Amino acid sequence: MSTALRRIDLSANTSSPDHDGTRLFNPFYPLVESSYVAYAVLFLAGLVLAVGVVANMAVMCVVWNNYYMRSAWNYLLASVAFWDFLVLVVCLPVVVLNHLSNRRVLGDITCRMVPYMEVVSLGITSFTLCALGIDRFHAATSSPEPKARRVEHCRSVLLKMLLVWLAALLLSSPEIFLWQLSQAVSLLSRLLLHVLQGRMWWCFGCYFCLPVLFTVLCQMATRNVNSDSSSAQKKRSHDERSDSQKRQQHQAVERQLNCTLLALAVVYGVCALPEHVCNITLAYTHLTISEVTAAILALLHHFLLFLKCAVTPVLLLCLCKVGSG
């Protein structure tokens, strides 16, 4: 996510001169104390990249190759896996190389592309959590009788995905222009400060509070509806005992889907909250941090996002009723 802290880091990289001309700085030689940190960052990045790429590809392949998994629920999860895959493959190497070489790779292109793709990924995840919460609430308020699984029409699935994608792509578009605005700090410093603070609160509300609160409220409403329906089922006559096993299986599937949605929201919230807390604290406490500290915090925030991209598909595969929607 592009925030004030990352702008500090990017501005520092922009203003720092290239001491070696066109030659990249080698953080691994000579072998000093900072080299061990570079090796640790490289090892962690390789581990996150390998796990995330394999897991996200597995989720996409499972959904794509199974006819009975072609529902809006599963395609939304597959779209999250697709964007997480892109963020890991495109953004992670650029971020690590920028940090280790102390210079920007490909100039303004990566400074625009990386924040945009990261915020799009957060938007896809946020709006997908909201859509899945609506799906779970709709399933709880519909008929409690178990229904045969059906494959949704392609038009219905594409419409739901299109709404999520368009919202994420359009709302993330200011990230492309914020980098250009940050280049005019000397002329528009006060305007830039207000823009970044507004963007900070917008990201906190739209990409953190909205999906987390939406998921919690949908879970609470779903549990209340399920408790009311279960108490009503206990009052039914004994003639319906023959359908009890099917009903129990149906309820077990619904509980697992609710647990999957809640687990996704927890992982997302845990990985996104530290950056928001850090940015708000730095913006309103007037703390001064060095460029080295800002670079370390920015790298940590990047890695939290990459960790979310790698853990989410692993979680789906472990819970592995991806196709139960």
Results as ranks from 00 to 15, higher is better:
208 F>K: 11
204 F>P: 03
225 V>M: 06
234 K>F: 02
234 K>L: 07
220 M>S: 05
232 A>T: 02
204 F>V: 06
190 R>A: 07
208 F>L: 15
194 H>R: 11
216 V>G: 03
213 L>V: 13
207 Y>N: 12
227 S>F: 01
169 L>P: 09
193 L>G: 01
172 S>K: 05
191 L>I: 09
191 L>W: 13
176 I>V: 11
231 S>A: 14
171 L>S: 14
204 F>D: 04
178 L>I: 06
225 V>W: 04
219 Q>E: 08
213 L>G: 12
216 V>L: 15
201 W>S: 06
172 S>D: 03
202 W>E: 05
224 N>R: 13
224 N>K: 14
166 L>N: 11
168 A>G: 13
174 P>Q: 11
185 V>W: 06
230 S>E: 10
194 H>A: 08
234 K>Q: 12
234 K>I: 02
166 L>I: 14
214 F>V: 02
182 S>K: 01
172 S>H: 04
196 L>N: 14
224 N>D: 09
233 Q>D: 07
189 S>G: 09
228 D>N: 02
203 C>G: 09
215 T>V: 14
211 P>F: 07
217 L>R: 06
226 N>G: 00
229 S>H: 04
187 L>M: 09
224 N>I: 02
190 R>S: 10
170 L>R: 01
217 L>S: 05
179 W>Y: 13
228 D>P: 01
188 L>M: 11
234 K>V: 06
180 Q>G: 04
171 L>Q: 04
233 Q>G: 03
222 T>W: 02
228 D>K: 05
233 Q>L: 09
170 L>C: 11
212 V>M: 15
168 A>H: 02
190 R>H: 07
183 Q>S: 04
199 R>F: 03
219 Q>T: 11
186 S>A: 14
174 P>F: 09
224 N>S: 04
189 S>A: 11
218 C>M: 13
195 V>G: 00
211 P>D: 15
221 A>C: 14
184 A>S: 05
209 C>E: 08
214 F>S: 06
225 V>Y: 04
185 V>L: 15
177 F>E: 06
